[in-house]
Design a binder for these strands. Sequence first.
DNA 1: GTCTATACGCTGATAGAC
DNA 2: GTCTATCAGCGTATAGAC
Lengths: 183, 183
Amino acid sequence: MPPNSPRDAIRGAATELFARDGYAGTTVRAIAAAAGCDPALVIRHFGSKEALFLATVPASTELARILAGPVESLGRELVGFVLGASESRVAGVYRAMLSASDRPEIKERLRASMHDVFVGPLADRIGGAYPELRARLVAAQFAGLINAYWLVADPVLRNADRSATVELYGDAIQRLLDSDDPP
Amino acid sequence: MPPNSPRDAIRGAATELFARDGYAGTTVRAIAAAAGCDPALVIRHFGSKEALFLATVPASTELARILAGPVESLGRELVGFVLGASESRVAGVYRAMLSASDRPEIKERLRASMHDVFVGPLADRIGGAYPELRARLVAAQFAGLINAYWLVADPVLRNADRSATVELYGDAIQRLLDSDDPP
DNA sequence: GTCTATACGCTGATAGAC
DNA sequence: GTCTATCAGCGTATAGAC
C-alpha cells in the first residue's frame, strides 16, 4: 500500500471533513474536491458514503490506555480526557457518529465500539455487583459529557472552572466504579 | 385556529415521522403524504423543513413536574422517567434532535431548551457550591442515559434489571445534586 | 486496473397559475 | 390557499477513455 495513494487521500480528506461538518453536512463531492479526484472515485473505492465514514473511525488508543489505568482514579481521568480531547480527534469523530446515528449501521458501530473499547474491558476490572451494567452506565456518563461539552458546547460547561468539573463529574462517575455495595 | 386545519395535520404528521425516522430520514414529501396534502404546502406553511421540525418540539410538562419535586429523591426519579418514557414522546423528540444536531439552529434549540426546562430551574433548587455547573452536569448525565437507552439502545442496558439501573445511575446523579461538600 | 464523464432518481425549495 | 412545474444539489451506478 503506497503512502500517497488516492485511497489514503480520500480517507484523509473525509476524516477531516466529517469531523468538521458532521455526516450530513459533508458531501461526497466535497470529499472528492479536497482529495483532488472525481466524486465517482470516492464511491468506487469505498462503496458508499456510509462505508467511507465507517472507515474513518479510528481506534482510540489513548482511551484504552486510560481505561487500563488504576480504577480508583478512573472517574477524574476520564473527565480530564474529555475536557482536553481537542487535540485528539475523539470529539470530532464522536460528534460525527452521533450526528449520523439514525443510520442503523452507524448506530450499531457506535454501540459496538463503545462495548469493545469501553464496557467490556472496564467490566472485567471492577468488582461488586452488576459489573457490566455499571460499566455501561459509566459509558453513558462519559458520552453524556462529550455530548454536552463538544456537541452542544454548552457555555455553562465551557466557561466553568475545569478542575471543578473534573472533581464533580469525576466523583459522580467514580461512584459507579466503586463497589462498596453489600452483596 | 380551527382544530382540523391542514397546518395542524402537517405538524401532527411531522411530529410522528421525525420521532420515528429521525430528521434526515424524514422527507418533506413523506410528511405531505401523511398529512394528505401537497409537499409545497409544507414548506409554504412552515418556511422550511428545519423550521417545521423546531415547531414540533414540545415543552415537556412531565419533566418539569419531576424537576419541581423533592430534591433528595430526584436522581432516581429522573432515571425512572427515562426508562419509562416510551409512552411520552420525550425519547423520540430527543433522538430526533440529536440526529439533527449538526444544524446550528437545532443544536442551539437543544441547548436552550435544556437550559430553560432543566438547568435553570434545577440550579435554583440545589444548594452548595457551583449550583449551575452541577445542574448542567446532571443534565449531561440525563442526556447520556437517554442516548444510551433510547438512541443507541444498548442491549446491556435494555436487558438489565430496571430497578438496579434506577438505583445505580440514580445515586450517581444524586451525588451531584447533594451539596455535602465543605465550603 | 484507474480514473472520468455522464446520467438517474432522489432531496428541499421556489415561482406562478388556478 | 392550494397545486403544478421546475430548480439546483445530493448519493450513486455505469459506460468507456487512458
